[in-house]
Amino acid sequence: MSNPLLEPIHGISLEDYSAACAKLGSGLSENEVATALGVELPVWQEANLLWPERMKEDSTFQIVTLFGQYFGAADQHPKFSNLQATVSEEGAGNIQKIKTDKDFYQELEVARQVAYDHGLDGASWITDKYGITLGDFQVAASLWNEQIHKDIAADYQKYNQTQDAYKQKYTQLFANAQGGNVADDIEF
């Protein structure tokens, strides 16, 4: 039985919308996204308001789940295949790497969080340092999500140890950069 909440809005399917959101996150403008979808700005902006409304209405979370899957597959979306935001050569390499190298993704995910914990914008830090945009980072997150859940189920301890090691590495890095933490002098 088809779900009426999954019907396209102005011909923009959930798959189109999800890929468009990923591309907006990678630096494309609203006008570029609208053109790629074969619509004008007012049509895109309506779809861009109405898809989140459908998500709010959907108590089964089916739309959100599918959104995540399609978002992760944005690079394969035919309407956006020829449209990439301009990135440096190094950035392009890292964008490729984060989508193919799980360890690299997991390390940067921790780094990003630790950056926030030290008053930095983690998303900007990743972009400045590795040239990976927020959109590409989120695409990588949805690509690895399922595998990471499997890893945790298979060997929680190993997963935890790796995470802790990353955490320690970046906590040290960011704490040093700010001249230490406020409670460094208090010891048991």
């Binding site: 011909g11 049509v43 309506e46 779809a47 109405l50």
Partner: peptide, 13 residues
């Protein structure tokens, strides 16, 4: 074709 889609009942469009 100004637009390649079929418009549905949206907010103003």
């Amino acid at each position: 074709k100004f637009m390649t889609v079929t418009l549905s009942d949206g907010i103003h469009i």
